[in-house]
Structure formats: C-alpha cells, structure tokens
Nucleic acid binder design. Sequence first.
DNA 1: CCTCCGATGTGCT
DNA 2: GCACATCGGAGGC
Length: 199
Amino acid sequence: MSQRVSAIGAGVDVHAAALLLLGAELVAHGVTIRITEVEAYAGPLDPASHAFRRTPRSAIMYGPPGRLYVYRIHGHHCANVVTGVDGLASAVLLRAGEVIDGVSTARERRGSGDSVAAAAVARGPGNLARAAGITSADLGIDLFHPDARVRLQDGAQETRPVSTGPRVGVRHAADHTWRYWLTDDPTVSAYRRHPRAGH
DNA sequence: CCTCCGATGTGCT
DNA sequence: GCACATCGGAGGC
C-alpha cells in the first residue's frame, strides 16, 4: 500500500517527501518523467539549503508545500518541490528520472544532433529540468493542481529498495546522507563530492 | 579515477 | 564589485 505523492501537499517531513517522490511522475511541457533520484534540503537546519537563510530567492520555500522551486546555477535550471508545512522551509531536488512519455521531445531539448543514451536524457538535475522544459517561468506552480502546466502524479507501484548516500556537489553538510534513489536504476546520476567540501 | 572551466544569477560587502 | 554556486561536459592520468 504505497502512500500517494499528494501527501506532500499536506506538509509531510522533507525526508518522507523525498521517498514519496521516488517512482512518482512529473508531467511537464509534453514530457512525463518517472522520478528515480532526489535529494532532501532541510531549510534553516541545513547549511546546504538555499533556505538556510531567508532571501528573495529562497522565500518560496517558506511558503506552502507542493510548489515548484526553480533556481539557476551555472546556466542550468534545477527543479525542486517545496515540502514541509507553511513557514518551515524545506525542499526536495529532483535529480534524475526515466522519460516515460514524450521521449522525442525530451531528446530534442537536449540539443541538436545530440545522441545521449536513453537512460541519460534526464540524468542530473540540470538535464532533468531541461528534458522537462522547466524554466524560471514555471517558478511557483502548484504541482498538485490537476490543470497545472507542471504537475506530479502517482506512478506505478514500486517494489525496488531505496538507496541513500551523501548529496552531490554540496560544499556544506557534505556527509549528510540525504540523497535517495531507486536501487540500481540506470538513470541515476554519479556521485561527485564538492571540491572544497570538508575532510 | 581526477581536474578544469564555461556560464550566469544571487547575495554579500 | 565580486565570490561562489543543489551543474555538466570535456579532457587528462
């Protein structure tokens, strides 16, 4: 009996939300992606979170759960789901997924003449957002509204176990094992430690 | 495995 | 102004 991903909208804990998102489906701009890898960012308690401090950019994470937080880094977009209850900032980064519908559209978005492997079309947060056509124009969308341009829905029953490990590329709190993925899924991205992370 | 670097928005000084 | 970032691709060892 798996719980439904829409429980995130009721304000569940960020780690519970991360687990609910594994196997769920992101429907965006003509593409459907089954989520296989995520990371939890625990807001003011988490030095790696953009919401560690409240700024104009991070303000959306202090609002109600179920909204889409999009940020840009190094020229790439990354998509996050705001979690927790209103006022307690946290979010889950969508790191990788399997494109299960709109594959040709997703592939075209990866660039002209690109011949990436099927499993790599939405591998990595920048690539996932790009395959899904998600940009800053989608910031703040209610992902559980049935008519939203970008939305989340339940996927097929998942039986594989979940693996955990440290988050990719974070300088702070680099040893928190707050990355979650479907064990052995071929779409999951490789681990990279931040070059200036502690140790 | 590793290191470099393009690219550009954000937040701090 | 400026350092740095929830990245990704390329290239060296």
